[in-house]
Amino acid sequence: MSDVNTASPALPASRNLHRFANPGRFLRLSGRILPPVALIGLALTVAGLVWGLFFSPADWQQHDAVRIMYVHVPAAWLASFGYASLAIASIASLVWRHPLADLAAVEIGPVGAAFTALCLATGSLWGKPMWGAWWVWDARMTSVLVLFFLYLGHIALVRAFDDQQRGYRAGAILALVGVVNLPIIKYSVDWWNTLHQPASITLTGAPTMAPSMLWPLLLVAVGGMFGFAALVTARTRAAVMERRIRALTLAQVRAQA
């Protein structure tokens, strides 16, 4: 072990990172952490949703429609959180040429797009009975729609090249350019007047929401984070195995030729 370390003293950081690039090691390690992460995610999400749907109080003016919040807000957080993780994977892919980061970025795309679509759809279902409109072109809703298009663009772009490496690179550049949209989404409700209300939960101030509504919301949100991580990990594991299958099949074909 010390031999390996002294062999390339100039690259300790990348060496560390690339330890996880070993597919066998990744499969073993992720196979061990995936079940607990998925279970925690499922348990927290189900608990939060049941709490929110049946036990949390109705809002004084929205009545029971406020319960849509327990799916809409976590979906919205996951949409942005997922895009941030896509950007981090893209940096790892561009800077360190990390093969697992390439695969993870490809797998984050569809999951993030699904949660963004959920955010838009549940928002629409909430907006119609409360505001009186399915959709309004205000800064918050438009910027989230742009996030959805960014995910779709990434999904298409990473699959658009015969040379996979070029697809990874193009997707990573798109993902990083799109990061500018994240602060726009977050602050759209403060920078411009919108139909969408400002944030109830901020890092700096006290939440403007009763604790009996805040707790189920946080449960679903944290459970969703675990669930998102579990989904992406499971898909990346499958992608690692699929890549190995492709390589083995190719080697077999070559050996027979």
Binding site: V66, M130, Q197, P198
Partner: peptide
């Protein structure tokens, strides 16, 4: 067309 704008406050009916 008239749309209602909600604010960032959520509270139970009894509150």
């Amino acid at each position: 067309e008239v749309l209602a704008k909600h604010d960032e406050n959520y509270m139970p009916g009894d509150m």
